[in-house]
Design a protein around this nucleic acid. Structure first.
Lengths: 168, 168
DNA sequence: CGGTTGAGTAAAGCACCTTGACTTGCCTCT
DNA sequence: AGAGGCAAGTCAAGGTGCTTTACTCAACCG
């Protein structure tokens, strides 16, 4: 039988530290799998950009606001993704200097793959958690964790959520 | 009565995203308070360095290993902290080229303040969570969250924990 | 029409880290 | 003792990903 978590030295460490470590480990594992799945040079911010653009596309200034970066930084990200065939700049229906940045099929394929990988990873995690021999299933534990995290986020941020940014 | 979290649109988002957002919000709040408490230019990595050095001090190569960076980067951090009076380089008892990096009283005072701020923040969070009107107290919820996080971390990393690094 | 607004871009700077190359003190092996 | 190796520390250069500053260009509005 493994260590009981209340005996684990980790249990006494700061909540912030635990959150950071869990996030880092999960994101790192996800990123490794994304790389293995044929996207070695797509960083998490690229996936976030794909999500922020969405099926309808957006201008790069809108993208900047959604990612929480300057419009210059967003422009560089779009340049990079365009060069690699993940987005196109099209004429914007509203005219002006505006350009509509839209996802190519390559980006949509990546989104689908990334979604599968995320869910697969979470399912694996549930299995590993459930294998401890406790009465509770891993899936139930992850559901509870998710609920608690949502409550913490709402307590800290209210209804308006900030963009997820690289942490320090 | 506030929104029930299973109705919250956040509930459907990825676990990784929730972890990242919770971490970012909590760390950001902590960092703001550290700045207000008189340490406007101490970043989280500096606090981690203080913890990694500990009461006995360490060489900068040891510090590098504990922070998960190159020894050059650790050397720069030590240079910076030394210039600002938070650490001193002393002769190492084991001799050689080694130098023992030790905390000054300023750093120890900072560690004490940071510890108070972290615990205060967590206590506030517990109060806010408990104010929802549910049967469960905020402190109980945070204890459960902590337990779940420890289990997730152990499932992903095993017994050897990697250093906490900036995330992407 | 002149002025303002806002999207996009270009250039430079900066924070923070890496890789590469080197010096220096000690230890080991013959 | 002397040669070689090893590990700590340090210089120097490079690179990434962002910001700040400054500009151009298109539409709108009085």
């Amino acid at each position: 039988m493994g260590p009981v978590e209340s005996d684990d030295p980790l249990y006494g460490t700061e909540l912030t530290f635990l959150l950071g470590l869990a996030f880092q480990l999960l994101l790192g594992e996800f990123n490794d799998r994304v790389a293995e799945a044929g996207y070695p040079d797509l960083r998490p911010v690229h996936g976030l950009a794909f999500q922020a653009l969405g099926p309808a596309g957006a201008t790069s200034s809108e993208l900047a606001a959604r990612l929480g970066v300057t419009k210059q930084a967003a422009g560089q990200i779009v340049d990079d993704l365009e060069r690699r065939g993940y987005v196109r700049r099209e004429a914007h229906p509203a005219g002006g200097r505006r350009k509509l940045v839209v996802l190519t099929e390559a980006a949509q394929a990546h989104l689908a793959v990334a979604g599968r990988l995320l869910h697969g990873l979470e399912a694996e995690l549930a299995t590993r958690l459930g294998a401890g021999g406790e009465a509770e299933t891993g899936a139930a534990e992850l559901g509870r964790l998710r609920t608690d995290l949502v409550r913490v986020i709402r307590a800290l941020a209210g209804t308006e959520l900030p963009p997820l940014r690289p942490v320090w």
